[in-house]
């Protein structure tokens, strides 16, 4: 006998044993009560329920830890750059390489669904660039995961690098979920995306240690409220550092390069202990 019921959150499922849920049960527990959630083992169903309690990102996170260890063993500070498509990651990275590639030995892992267009734009600054095409997913993976980054590592001269910038696939949703073994996350947001983006994509905005506010040179030409954006950002990631930049005019790019230098400095003592 099946009982079909719908939970408050819209999920529904069928219980193939006879009991009702009149007494209501808590599906909102914390980790400690995870084992008890939906536990109907007291009812004879013929089958068996086994406890699993395994994190779904466990495999990705183990590979991310290996990447992190490899970066650290080579004294490399790695930065995961994330943004929506067209926010200006590649242009900003170009400006960045033009300023730092002479002094900071830099590698770039370029995530792109199909093409090498972005990687091509970064050539010529003396940085080591490798491309990860994510096109073999179902219509192209929308993010880089730790195994993809791992596959790129042998193509970089790790022993000769200080900094590796991982340019993630342009997407405000998926990349936030995947630890790739980075030391820090920087997000490139552009003001043409509107003030409300932090509220629509809180997971991404919350996961960044730095939010670059790009295309700031367009401010006089747009109906854009920078204070409203900052207050939206503040409620999803209180205290996050921001830098106003324009990859086009160069405004703020030196400040961003200083931030990168600060990451290199703060990373080194940590790397030494690994």
């Amino acid at each position: 006998m099946g009982r079909f019921h719908r939970h408050d959150d819209g999920t529904e499922h069928e219980h193939d044993h006879a009991h009702d849920h009149d007494q209501g049960h808590d599906h909102g527990g914390d980790q400690a009560s995870a084992a008890a959630l939906g536990d109907h083992t007291g009812y004879a169903t013929g089958g068996e329920r086994i406890q699993v309690l395994e994190r779904i990102f466990g495999e990705n996170d183990r590979t991310a830890a290996q990447n992190r260890a490899d970066f650290a063993a080579n004294g490399i500070c790695s930065i995961n750059m994330m943004s929506s498509p067209g926010a200006g990651k590649t242009t900003l990275l170009r400006e960045t390489l033009a300023r730092i590639a002479g002094t900071v030995r830099t590698g770039v892992i370029e995530g792109d669904i199909e093409t090498s267009l972005d990687a091509d734009r970064l050539a010529g600054f003396g940085a080591a660039i490798t491309l990860v095409n994510t096109g073999n997913g179902f219509g192209g993976e929308c993010h880089l995961d730790a195994p993809m980054v791992r596959s790129a590592l042998p193509r970089l001269p790790l022993a000769d690098l200080d900094l590796v910038v991982i340019e993630n696939v342009g997407n405000l949703v998926c990349p936030a979920e995947f630890d790739v073994g980075e030391y820090a996350r920087a997000m490139v947001y552009s003001i043409t995306e509107g003030e409300e983006k932090p509220l629509k994509y809180p997971v991404m905005f919350r996961s960044a240690q730095l939010v670059l506010i790009n295309k700031i040179d367009l401010l006089p030409h747009l109906d854009y409220d920078l204070d409203a954006f900052r207050s939206n950002l503040r409620v999803v990631n209180p205290g996050v550092k921001t830098i106003e930049v324009s990859a086009r005019t160069g405004e703020g790019v030196d400040t961003w390069c200083d931030w990168l230098q600060a990451q290199l400095t703060s990373f080194r003592p940590q790397a030494a202990t690994v």
């Binding site: 909102g28 980790q31 995870a34 084992a35 329920r49 086994i50 406890q51 699993v52 779904i56």
Partner: peptide, 16 residues
Amino acid sequence: VVSGEEFMVTSMDLAE
């Protein structure tokens, strides 16, 4: 954050 970051397989039902 107290809760809300969970993402795990908690249990599974196996046939007889």
